[in-house]
Design a protein around this nucleic acid. Sequence first.
DNA 1: TAACAATCCATTGACGACCATAAAATTCCA
DNA 2: TGGAATTTTATGGTCGTCAATGGATTGTTA
Lengths: 159, 159
Amino acid sequence: MDRFVSTFTNKIDAKGRVSVPASFRAVLERDGYAGGIYCYPSLDAPALDAGGERLAGKIDALLNDLAPYSDERDELSVALYGDVQVLTIDGDGRIVLPEGLRKHAGLQDRVAFVGLGDKFQIWEPGRFDERRQAAREKVRDHRKLFRSESDKGPGGTEE
Amino acid sequence: MDRFVSTFTNKIDAKGRVSVPASFRAVLERDGYAGGIYCYPSLDAPALDAGGERLAGKIDALLNDLAPYSDERDELSVALYGDVQVLTIDGDGRIVLPEGLRKHAGLQDRVAFVGLGDKFQIWEPGRFDERRQAAREKVRDHRKLFRSESDKGPGGTEE
DNA sequence: TAACAATCCATTGACGACCATAAAATTCCA
DNA sequence: TGGAATTTTATGGTCGTCAATGGATTGTTA
């Protein structure tokens, strides 16, 4: 297992600690884990993006694609790096979410960890449900991409 | 046998476990089985879609067609990865269906496994019957196309 | 020394591994 | 062909382990 998959909802305790799902921790360790996870506010959602070294590498790559002194790159650099927090994982697999991050995602007492393949997001569970409903509507539009293979009639051949 | 065929109805026990039909397990092992099955809510039915590595590969392929950091991809990722559960099969060939999935399909104490070729669906038996009735209505309209088929239904094992 | 952060310890509840039984299908043999 | 024996499959239960959670204790710094 080398991708973040599935959704897990955990509780924030009185001291602001949350357990990172065990399966996510396993992925992080394979992913050049260096004692902490990179976490920053999602650019287009009331959520947090998080991941390990691979995610950090992708951010670098994204910025390197932009012209070195462009306004666009400067703004994106600030937007990404400026808000990045390196959250250490304690001995029991928990992290502490700083106030700024909690506020951006509207986190109260429970958080949803949502696996997205090479990164994962942290959502307030209620908001995530709303977003998921909306996303499913859109996937419905792409249904045709699944159709061609799975709806073939009897007698179809496989590879 | 490398495709999921037939319908089997099994029971959910007190711990939420269900036996995956033996013939389906055989297909999964041929399909690059890696310890679990991928399962998510069907987009257009009160049922669950499930399959092995081949199905997971299709999801990846769909996402890889989209621009890496687009909003569209993020949304689809949430809908697909976020809803996907990796269900491990225990030593006796059983899986546990999490609450969220059970709710979407309206599963109570019995489930119908419906083979669809390269994936299969999981239905609440009553709902599946309704759907099959509807399907028969349509088949009746097109009966001329199926002249040669004399007696049997969808080929299912029913009790 | 008060306040806060990091580490350690304890409880509990869920899940996985394992075993036991029953029903059904298949094989084998008279 | 009939029926007994064996294997496969479905289902039920038990027990141990680990993850999630809550609380305590130590350390650090203003």
